[in-house]
Amino acid sequence: MDETGKELVLALYDYQEKSPREVTMKKGDILTLLNSTNKDWWKVEVKITVNGKTYERQGAVPAAYVKKL
């Protein structure tokens, strides 16, 4: 869990989004888990830093590609 009490997951593999509802992640990324009720796809929040600014993006990733921490 992070400092706000939200559950975290670890990306076990790289994943490139294939639709606007998904998010890209790299192996080793730590993501915030938002919903894991679907056994195949979990909704997560990814933090992306671009030019020193951090953005948050929500989307789905394959459940088999992440592990709860």
Rank of each mutant, 00 (worst) to 15 (best):
M1C: 15
M1F: 13
M1Q: 13
M1S: 12
M1R: 12
D2F: 13
D2Y: 12
D2P: 14
D2E: 13
D2R: 10
D2L: 14
E3M: 13
E3V: 13
E3R: 12
E3P: 13
E3D: 13
E3G: 13
T4C: 15
G5W: 09
G5F: 11
G5R: 14
G5S: 11
G5H: 13
K6I: 12
K6L: 12
K6A: 10
E7K: 09
E7P: 10
E7V: 14
E7Y: 11
L8I: 08
V9K: 00
V9S: 00
V9G: 12
V9Q: 00
L10P: 00
L10R: 09
L10N: 04
L10H: 03
L10D: 02
L10Q: 09
A11K: 01
A11D: 01
A11N: 02
A11C: 13
L12D: 00
L12E: 02
L12P: 01
L12A: 02
Y13D: 06
Y13H: 11
Y13C: 15
Y13V: 11
D14E: 05
D14G: 04
D14F: 04
D14K: 03
D14I: 03
D14R: 03
Y15E: 02
Y15I: 00
Y15G: 02
Y15Q: 02
Y15P: 02
Y15D: 02
Y15W: 10
Q16M: 12
Q16E: 14
Q16W: 11
Q16I: 14
Q16A: 12
Q16S: 10
Q16G: 06
E17N: 07
E17R: 14
E17Y: 04
E17K: 13
K18F: 04
K18H: 07
K18D: 06
K18W: 04
K18A: 09
K18L: 08
S19T: 11
S19H: 10
S19R: 06
S19Q: 06
S19W: 06
S19Y: 05
P20G: 08
P20F: 09
P20Y: 08
P20T: 09
P20W: 09
R21L: 14
R21N: 15
R21G: 15
R21D: 15
R21E: 15
E22D: 04
E22A: 04
E22H: 07
E22K: 03
E22S: 05
V23A: 05
V23Y: 02
V23R: 02
V23F: 11
V23E: 03
V23I: 13
V23G: 00
T24M: 03
T24W: 05
T24G: 08
T24H: 02
T24L: 04
T24C: 07
T24I: 04
T24S: 15
M25Q: 02
M25V: 10
M25A: 02
M25F: 12
M25G: 01
M25H: 01
K26D: 01
K26G: 03
K26L: 07
K26H: 09
K26Y: 09
K26A: 09
K27N: 02
K27R: 10
K27F: 04
K27M: 07
K27S: 06
K27V: 06
K27W: 04
G28I: 02
G28S: 03
G28Y: 04
G28K: 02
G28A: 02
G28W: 04
D29F: 04
D29I: 04
D29L: 05
D29V: 03
I30Q: 03
I30G: 00
I30P: 01
I30D: 01
I30L: 07
L31I: 06
L31M: 12
L31Q: 00
L31A: 06
L31R: 03
L31C: 06
L31F: 06
T32F: 09
T32R: 13
T32I: 15
T32A: 08
L33Y: 02
L33P: 00
L33R: 00
L33Q: 01
L34G: 01
L34I: 14
L34P: 01
L34Y: 02
L34H: 03
N35Y: 05
N35A: 08
N35K: 07
N35Q: 10
N35I: 06
S36M: 10
S36F: 06
S36K: 08
T37D: 15
T37W: 07
T37G: 10
T37C: 14
N38D: 15
N38Y: 07
N38C: 11
K39W: 05
K39M: 10
K39A: 12
D40K: 12
D40E: 11
D40R: 11
D40G: 07
D40W: 15
D40Y: 15
D40P: 01
D40T: 12
W41A: 00
W41Q: 01
W41M: 06
W41N: 00
W41K: 00
W41G: 01
W42A: 03
W42C: 05
W42E: 00
W42N: 00
W42V: 07
K43W: 15
K43P: 01
V44Y: 01
V44W: 01
V44H: 00
V44K: 00
V44E: 00
E45K: 10
E45M: 13
E45F: 05
E45Q: 12
E45W: 05
E45T: 09
V46Q: 12
V46P: 00
V46R: 08
V46E: 00
K47P: 06
K47S: 12
K47A: 09
K47N: 08
K47H: 11
I48W: 13
I48K: 07
I48M: 09
I48S: 06
I48H: 08
I48Y: 13
I48L: 11
T49Q: 10
T49F: 11
V50A: 08
V50R: 09
V50D: 08
V50I: 14
N51K: 07
N51I: 03
N51S: 08
N51G: 12
N51P: 03
G52C: 09
G52L: 04
G52N: 08
G52H: 06
G52K: 05
K53G: 08
K53D: 08
K53V: 14
T54V: 13
T54I: 12
T54Q: 09
Y55K: 07
Y55G: 05
Y55P: 01
Y55V: 12
Y55S: 08
Y55Q: 08
Y55H: 09
Y55A: 06
E56H: 15
R57T: 06
R57Q: 05
Q58M: 09
Q58P: 03
Q58W: 06
G59P: 01
G59K: 01
G59E: 01
A60F: 15
A60R: 15
A60L: 15
A60W: 15
A60G: 06
A60S: 14
V61K: 01
V61Q: 00
V61F: 01
V61M: 04
V61L: 01
V61I: 08
P62E: 05
P62D: 03
P62G: 03
P62C: 07
P62V: 04
A63Y: 03
A63C: 07
A63S: 11
A63G: 03
A63E: 02
A63N: 02
A63T: 05
A64E: 10
A64N: 11
Y65L: 14
Y65T: 06
Y65C: 15
Y65D: 03
V66F: 04
V66P: 05
V66C: 14
V66T: 01
K67V: 15
K67C: 15
K67A: 10
K67G: 06
K67N: 04
K67W: 09
K67M: 14
K68F: 07
K68R: 12
K68H: 08
L69H: 04
L69K: 02
L69V: 10
L69I: 14
L69D: 01
